[in-house]
Each structure stands twice: as C-alpha cells, then as structure tokens.
C-alpha cells in the first residue's frame, strides 16, 4: 500500500465481496447513486481513507468526526464514497491505494458508478448507460447483461484510474457510466446507473424515491458539485470529448 495513503479498518471487512465506488465526477452520478444505496441498505462503515494528500477536512455526522472518504459494508457488498471533491493531483496515489486494498481483500468485482458528460442532456428523457471493463471477464459480464460497451474513446478521472490499476492486477472491474450533465448534479442519471447495476449485483434500492427527491438532491449537492467542477478542469476532463486518433490495437 502507498505510504501516503492509509486505509484504516474499523470493523471486519468481508472477503471476496463485490465493491461499488461513488466518487465525485460529472453530474455527481456515482456519489448520488452510492449514497442512495448506502442509506437504503443501511450499510455500516467498515473502513476509511486517511491521507496527507487530502485537504484538512473532516465530516461531522451526529456530532462525531469522520473521514470524507469511507467504505461501507452490508453482507457481501462494499461501497466506497467520497463526501468531498478529491484534488485532481491526489487521484493517482489514492486510487492506487484503494485498488491495492481491494486486491488484499480479494474483492471479486469492482463496479464504479459515474457519468459521461452529454452536451444535449437536457433533451434526454431516459439517460443511457454504457459499460467499460478492465479485462475479458468484465467485458463478458457486460455483454451477457446486454449493457452497451464503450469500445473506443478516452476516460479521465477516478473511474479511469480504477480500471487501469485493476487491469494491472487482473481484477474484474467495471465502470457504469450514465449520460449526465457535466456540471449539474444529475439524480436521474444516478437512478439509471442503479437500474443497470441491478443487472450485475442485486441491490434492493428504490430509485423512484431518488427521482421524487430530485430537486432536493440537486440543491443539497450544489456545493460539492461546485468544488468538483474545478477539479474536473484540473484533471482535463474535457478530453473525454476528444475523438481518438489513429487506431492502435
């Protein structure tokens, strides 16, 4: 594990679990989706991330301090969530430490939930969800479930790094990316990504509740979205719009 990042376990962590990730990115899709899953499944905190690479922030819950990046568990499901925008310059060591920890814990499948910025999102009623895999097994899972695979293009940010580091370790990792607003919280995209996640891992979560509370979610997520926006600029997120150059197999 990286020296600058520690993952501190507070309770016993299940082995051979499936792990979902909700990290701040376009439309905060992953954060909204994973926060809904943690809350509805009443998952409990089992570990947290401690690192000098993070800003000096704690999050207060019921009067007690917590790390802004935590891992929750319920039976055989783990969920990682960040309550703050992660500095773009810290993403690599943080994601590498998280993937190393997943490897130690024998995580069976890692699924990152997120968004793919879509310029005409306002005119899309039902956001489409695309999948990306870290190895042949992940691609097989996506194809068997009828999830559209993103065949070519660029991915930038936490999901991209998790896929890359998981590929190095041959961990089956999947990114599920819903069409989303670039810089507005998108609860509809989060609901779409939960629906697709359900095809791979059964998470008994009611997305209609998320859709009904859409306006409240958008309002509550304003400040983290604002801070995430500046990190998206720093990580050159707009490169995802680029058309790939010559084909390199």
């Amino acid at each position: 594990m990286s020296e600058t990042v520690r993952i501190v376990e507070r309770r016993e962590v299940p082995t051979d679990a499936k792990m979902i990730h909700g990290l701040p990115d376009v439309g905060l899709v992953g954060v909204i989706a994973v926060s809904q899953i943690i809350s509805q499944l009443k998952m409990v905190e089992v570990a947290y991330v401690d690192s000098d690479l993070l800003p000096p922030v704690i999050v207060l819950h019921e009067g007690l301090p917590h790390s802004p990046i935590r891992i929750f568990s319920n039976d055989n499901l783990l969920a990682l969530i960040s309550e703050i925008a992660i500095p773009a310059s810290s993403l690599q060591p943080l994601m590498r430490a998280i993937v190393n920890w997943m490897d130690e814990k024998g995580v069976e499948t890692a699924i990152s939930l997120g968004g793919i910025a879509t310029p005409n999102r306002q005119n899309i009623e039902s956001p489409k969800v695309y999948g990306v895999g870290s190895n042949e097994l992940s691609l097989k899972i996506l194809r068997e479930k009828g999830i559209s695979v993103m065949e070519r293009g660029f991915l930038v940010g936490p999901q991209a790094l998790i896929l890359q580091y998981c590929a190095e370790k041959n961990i089956a990792a999947i990114s599920l990316l819903a069409q989303a607003f670039y810089n507005y919280p998108d609860p509809e995209a989060a609901a779409a990504v939960i629906d697709t996640l359900n095809q791979i891992v059964k998470v008994p979560v009611n997305v209609s509740d998320l859709l009904e509370k859409g306006e409240e979610v958008r309002l509550r997520m304003r400040d983290i979205m604002r801070r995430t926006q500046s990190e998206l600029v720093r990580m050159r997120k707009s490169q995802e719009y680029d058309i790939p150059h010559y084909y390199v197999a």
Binding site: N183, R226, Q229
Partner: peptide, 14 residues
C-alpha cells in the same frame, strides 16, 4: 454559496 441578508442561494451556472 448563500446570502442570509437577501435569503438567496447562488445557483450552479455554466
């Protein structure tokens, strides 16, 4: 991102 005097919130804009 809020102003108590005007009781207003600053929206996200692009």
């Amino acid at each position: 991102s809020w102003d108590l005097e005007t009781q207003s919130l600053q929206p996200l804009f692009n």
